[in-house]
Amino acid sequence: MTLLPGYPAPAFKLPGDDGRWWGLPDLRGQAAVLYFYPLAHSRDCALEAMAFEVLLGEFAAAGARVLGISTDSRAQLARFRHAQGLTFPLLSDAGREVSRLYGARRSPWGLVGRAGRQTYLLDERGRVVHHWPQVDPAWHAQAVLDTLRRWRDGQDGAVTLGA
């Protein structure tokens, strides 16, 4: 299942690594980056998380919140967040329901029961602006930021603010 630009993102409610619950209504009024990743503490997941962390101020300046979503437990995510020094929320989809809703239901690397690495950019109303079905963790955060900026400038994407 692929969520197309302009379509509403599926509603969800997931616990964060810090115990706070997050859902689509909590993101209303700001753009959001939902990035799915398969395994906390893996080299590529750490690389991707750190890339988002380094650019976090620029995402905030562009009016977007970043949230990582994994099928790891809250405890695993809390250890990962602490080990990497991350300041953005990591959400636990241990039941895999949200991964299925967003089409990130399996990892292409044979990690059974793990979310596939992919990302969605959502607008202020929770509609899909852009979807990255395949991700290279080395450059992905910058690509998302570039797309966010082009979209904000009206140069990219099927969804425009206020539409």
Results as ranks from 00 to 15, higher is better:
156 D>W: 06
144 V>Y: 00
51 A>D: 14
47 L>H: 00
73 S>N: 04
154 G>P: 02
87 T>N: 11
156 D>H: 12
129 V>S: 05
160 T>W: 08
45 C>F: 05
94 A>G: 12
5 P>R: 11
134 Q>M: 11
122 L>M: 03
153 D>A: 15
90 L>T: 02
160 T>I: 01
153 D>H: 11
41 H>Y: 07
10 P>C: 01
31 A>C: 11
16 G>W: 05
155 Q>N: 01
135 V>N: 00
115 A>C: 09
6 G>E: 07
107 S>F: 12
83 A>T: 03
114 R>S: 08
9 A>K: 05
161 L>D: 10
119 T>F: 05
37 Y>F: 14
2 T>K: 05
122 L>V: 07
64 A>W: 02
26 D>W: 00
94 A>T: 12
11 A>P: 09
36 F>R: 12
37 Y>S: 07
127 R>E: 14
106 R>N: 03
104 A>S: 10
23 G>V: 12
161 L>K: 05
9 A>N: 07
45 C>Y: 08
82 H>D: 15
86 L>N: 06
7 Y>A: 15
40 A>R: 01
90 L>H: 15
156 D>R: 03
129 V>G: 04
139 W>P: 09
64 A>N: 06
71 T>H: 08
56 L>E: 07
119 T>Y: 10
99 S>F: 09
133 P>M: 05
140 H>W: 13
38 P>K: 12
45 C>M: 12
119 T>A: 11
128 V>S: 10
161 L>W: 05
155 Q>P: 06
66 V>I: 14
15 P>N: 05
158 A>H: 11
143 A>V: 08
42 S>N: 12
56 L>N: 06
33 V>H: 02
31 A>S: 15
152 R>A: 11
141 A>T: 10
30 Q>S: 13
157 G>W: 11
75 A>L: 09
148 L>K: 03
77 L>T: 03
116 G>M: 04
3 L>S: 02
76 Q>L: 05
84 Q>A: 05
159 V>T: 09
125 R>E: 15
100 R>Y: 11
38 P>F: 14
78 A>V: 01
55 L>A: 12
62 A>Y: 09
112 V>S: 02
89 P>H: 01
31 A>W: 00
121 L>V: 05
2 T>C: 00
18 D>T: 01
114 R>L: 01
71 T>R: 13
62 A>T: 08
4 L>Q: 15
62 A>K: 02
149 R>N: 13
40 A>H: 01
91 L>P: 00
10 P>I: 01
42 S>W: 06
135 V>A: 01
38 P>W: 15
141 A>S: 12
42 S>M: 07
38 P>R: 13
63 G>V: 03
114 R>G: 04
90 L>Y: 15
131 H>T: 10
58 E>W: 15
